[in-house]
């Protein structure tokens, strides 16, 4: 595992957090969270009315 050791960051610069559990703690994080809540409140007005039909009928030909 020598290669891994050479390239790896020092432990202090890494973190164990993952996307699932990274809690935003800063003011910016709080603001983003509030904005996300607002978006979720109004999103149903924007969403396609019948999600199942929409997803089923979204069929594309393969391209490059």
């Amino acid at each position: 595992m020598a290669e891994r050791e050479q390239i790896k960051r020092t432990p202090t610069e890494r973190s164990e957090e993952t996307v699932d559990e990274a809690p935003p703690s800063s003011d910016a994080g709080e603001k983003l969270k509030a904005e996300l809540d607002d978006l979720l409140d109004e999103i149903d007005e924007v969403l396609e009315t019948n999600a199942e039909d929409f997803v089923r009928s979204f069929v594309q030909k393969g391209g490059q």
Partner: peptide, 14 residues
């Protein structure tokens, strides 16, 4: 490395 959610305004998948 530190807080992926901090990239929610720049990285599409996040």
């Amino acid at each position: 490395e530190n807080n992926p959610e901090s990239l929610a305004t720049t990285v599409d998948w996040i």
